[in-house]
Design a protein around this nucleic acid. Structure first.
Length: 801
RNA sequence: GCGGGUGUGGCGGAAUGGCAGACGCGACAGAUUUAGGAUCUGUUGUCACACGGCGUAUGAGUUCGAGUCUCUUCACCCGCACCA
């Protein structure tokens, strides 16, 4: 060994070896225990990989390499989520087909991933934009359609004027478009939905059966937002229809002093000739429509509204006539779009009542309703038969019974989550396989005609009329109805970005199957995914959507488990060196391939795992990258200190075993930073000694391999340790040899540190008293009376005197 | 407003209720070097010459012992949000 460490050279060499040996491909047999590790496949953007991708993949990369060495059959696949708006926008700009752009980007990404040395199974690569793949996306969609989970409705939708597409609720969080971040507007539109709300309870209950961090579970729970309450019918004066409202506090019905309807409530249009001040209503509506979602929910503290003239409602329990308002603090998208207002016990109603001069009648004892609404619990008052109850649980139950008896109300459940607006008025997505027949209505494309291929177009520009570019292709649009054979037209919307990723993990288990999305045997063996790592930003999008699809496939008997992922984890962001989120505009973006060119892939991998707690955000630091390179160079130079002994010297037994234990455990806990620190400490000990035996070196290289596979393989080979590390077993440790024969413990007097003494290993709690004979300890106690001795073996001796 | 989280040296960060600051960066010193760089060795929370004292956002509490557990206050981050 007289070479210096040259990462560029050895990394290329080992990447080729691994590829030629096919050593990271999952084995076809099903005898071994399996381990399915999944990381979120990327959208192949033109700018290539981001350091965030490296961190996201490196975590399970380490676990996968370790599990292979432990004898598992490991599936660690990679593919590309290749349909999507950025490629299409770029296509419009450069007038190049998105397929060409996507193919180029995929090749670029793949090349980059290989240069990092990730141990992905490339034989199972998939791309969601390829017909072989999206055939099955369409197939699952048709199954959803067949089971009544696809519907079309004209409602207010989230629309991005910049991208010219309808967005789902999940894609417009905070009133911003998920793709371009511009303000989303509400428009009435006729679009396709998937009935995800039908699965709300299953998605909630399923969380109890999986191993996800609490932060993720909580976020899903609050996004689904289940609430239980009651629907109550209010009669309206002079209108034959009842006004149905939703409330979680039906026991406060006696305190209802007015009603509020959302400005968009359909009943208004239906009976507009009975509304004396219709002009005022229309003006208010126009004003509301102008506000963005953001203004309507965040900035507007002042309640606004219009009282409907000529209309009043009747409180169904008290029989009192009460006024009806429209106000934009009531949303059409939640509950029934109308509420019963109880100003004494709801702050929003209270504010509205104050401004519009409505009565405030307390029905729960407590608080001071002159100052604010009282939302706490207490005895019911002014409420007839409910006055007998002193807590809301009982009073709600009593009222529910009453409402049911009288037939004016019923128990109900509401979710914040809305049905999934499932459409894009764009080109680069899966064509929705539905046909509109004037005679038969909406008909699914027959399964044997899948895939319904995306036709070539000349112009990818979305239509100004809100229609997809597909609508301009007559040969695509015009077809015959599969039912009646008559002339019909194809649906021209495409599926949203999240369609292809909602089931991709299933395709990985059997990617070349052309009979089914995946074979039963393969699914029974590989599913569920044992460990899925990805970004926190996907919790209320991809994670929710894919769980929904999987629950559905389970219900129709197509997959073997309801939940797709047994365990989920996430990684923290890598921030720029200025502590800000990396972005091109801030100029703080780090290109991972620059780091590879300068320091090597092993240094990059080591750094992203060492930089801090894996789940926490941490800023990039160039100097720390150098420190990681320095560590690898120290490992490299250990070759100069090598002793011919194949074993481990007695003095090194404890450090070797302790390192193996720490690394083994910490890799599994995603505590990569402390695992690496343990290896650094171990190397420091070898340097302090000035020597390392071959046995001591072997242990280090095996432990280091999952993080820095190239350098460890290279040194392994140079030392002549035999078969490459990818064929070796993970090292075990001997618990007996974890600590040396003597150990230093702390001596405390009343909890204050006073001295450190060496004691033999293996003392038990009972030996504590005997330590009082130690000279150092005797000196500390002096003449004092020992009242209590606390001895924690291996750690400390605390004497109370 | 609701939910979740975080707060430890100059910096990134370690610590099953048991020696706070592992490991790394940076800094300082020494060795080597014509010099710089690289490398190796040492020092590096803070006050103090020292003995020792003080230190994990804040104030209290539990305990032989608290960064860790309980309560208080403050600050910051993330998610949701007129959700009836």
């Amino acid at each position: 060994m007289n070479k210096t460490y040259n990462p560029q050279e050895i990394e290329k060499k080992w990447q080729k070896r691994w590829e030629d040996a096919h050593c990271f491909e999952a084995e076809a047999g099903h005898e071994k225990p399996k381990f399915y590790a999944l990381v979120e496949f990327p959208y192949p953007s033109g700018s290539g990989m981001h350091v965030g991708h490296i961190k996201a993949y490196s975590g399970l990369e380490v676990v996968s390499r370790k599990r292979r060495m432990e004898g598992y059959n490991v599936l660690f696949p990679m593919g590309f989520d290749s349909f999507g708006l950025p490629a299409e926008n770029y296509a419009i700009k450069t007038n190049t087909h998105p397929h060409i752009i996507t193919t180029r980007n995929v090749e670029h990404f793949k090349d980059q991933m290989k240069r990092i040395g990730f141990s992905f199974d490339w034989s199972r690569e998939i791309s969601t934009s390829l017909p072989d793949y999206y055939k099955w996306t369409q197939w699952i969609f048709l199954k959803l359609f067949d089971h009544g989970l696809v519907f079309r409705a004209k409602t207010l939708v989230n629309y991005c004027p910049h991208c010219k597409v309808v967005l789902s609720n999940e894609d417009s969080q905070g009133g911003k478009c998920d793709v371009c971040h511009s303000d989303v507007v509400q428009l009435p539109k006729d679009v396709w939905y998937l009935r995800i709300t039908e699965y709300a309870d299953k998605l909630l209950d399923g969380l109890d059966t999986v191993d996800y961090p609490d932060s993720i579970k909580q976020q899903e729970v609050s996004w689904i937002g289940r609430s239980t309450g009651a629907f109550v019918d209010f009669a309206l004066d002079g209108i034959p229809e009842k006004l149905e409202i939703y409330t979680t506090r039906c026991d406060t019905l006696y305190g209802v002093t007015f009603m509020v309807m959302a400005p968009e409530h359909p009943l208004l249009d239906q009976y507009k000739d009975r509304i004396a001040n219709w002009g005022e209503v229309e003006a208010y509506r126009a004003e509301c429509a102008k506000k963005t979602e953001f203004e309507r929910t965040q900035l507007v503290k002042d309640k606004t509204g219009v009282k409907l003239a000529g209309i009043s409602a009747v409180n169904p329990v008290s029989g009192k006539k009460i006024p009806v308002f429209i106000a934009d603090y009531v949303m059409m998208g939640y509950g029934t779009g109308a509420i019963m207002a109880v100003p004494a016990h709801d702050q929003r109603d209270w504010e509205f009542a104050r401004k519009f001069g409505a009565d405030i009648i307390p029905v729960i004892e407590g608080g001071d309703i002159e100052k604010e609404a009282y939302t706490g619990d207490g005895r019911m008052i002014n409420s007839d038969f409910l006055n007998a109850y002193d807590n809301k649980k009982d009073s709600i139950e009593a009222m529910l019974r009453y409402l049911a008896e009288k037939g004016i109300g019923r128990k109900g459940v509401q979710y914040k989550m809305k049905d999934w607006a499932f459409n894009r008025q764009r080109y680069w997505g899966e064509p929705i396989p539905l046909i509109h027949c004037p005679k038969c209505g909406t008909v699914g494309v027959p399964y044997d005609q899948l895939p319904l291929r995306l036709p070539d177009v000349e112009n990818f520009e979305p239509g100004t009329d809100g229609q997809s570019p597909l609508a301009r292709i007559e040969s695509f649009v015009n077809c015959t109805c599969p039912k009646c054979g008559g002339p019909a037209k194809r649906e021209t919307d495409t599926m949203p970005q999240w369609a292809g990723s909602s089931w991709y993990f299933l395709r990985f288990v059997d990617p070349h199957n052309d009979e089914a999305f995946a074979g039963r045997d393969e699914m029974n063996y590989w599913m569920p995914v044992d460990w899925y790592n990805g970004g926190m930003e996907h919790v209320t999008r991809h994670l929710l959507y894919s769980r929904f699809w999987h629950h559905f496939l389970y219900d129709i008997g197509e997959v073997n488990t309801p939940e797709p992922y047994a365990k989920r984890s996430y990684q923290g962001l890598i921030l720029g060196s200025d502590g800000e989120k990396m972005s091109k505009s801030k100029g703080n973006v780090i290109d991972p391939l620059d780091i590879v060119a300068q320091y090597g892939a092993d240094t990059l991998r080591l750094y992203v795992l060492f930089m801090g707690d894996y789940t926490a955000a941490a800023p990039w630091n160039d100097d720390s990258v150098k420190g990681c390179k320095r560590f690898l160079e120290r490992v490299w130079r250990l070759q100069e200190m090598l002793l011919p002994d194949e074993g481990v010297r007695p003095a090194m037994e404890a450090p070797v075993n302790a390192m193996i234990k720490k690394v083994s455990e910490d890799y599994e806990r995603m505590k990569y930073n402390t695992a690496i620190a343990a290896m650094m400490s171990y190397v420091n000990e070898l340097y302090a000694d000035g020597h390392a035996t071959r046995g001591e070196m072997r242990a280090l290289l095996l432990c280091l391999n999952p993080v820095a596979p190239h350098i460890s393989e290279e040194i392994w080979e140079a030392c002549g340790f035999g078969e490459p590390i990818y064929r070796q077993s993970w090292p075990g440790y001997d618990p007996e040899k974890l600590v040396a024969s003597e150990v230093e413990i702390a001596v405390q007097i009343r909890g204050k540190l006073r001295a450190r003494i060496m004691v033999p290993t293996g003392l038990t709690q009972a030996d504590g008293e005997s330590l009082l004979e130690n000279e150092t300890v005797k000196g500390l106690i002096g003449d004092a009376q020992v009242r209590k001795v606390i001895f924690v073996p291996g750690r400390l001796l605390n004497i109370v005197c």
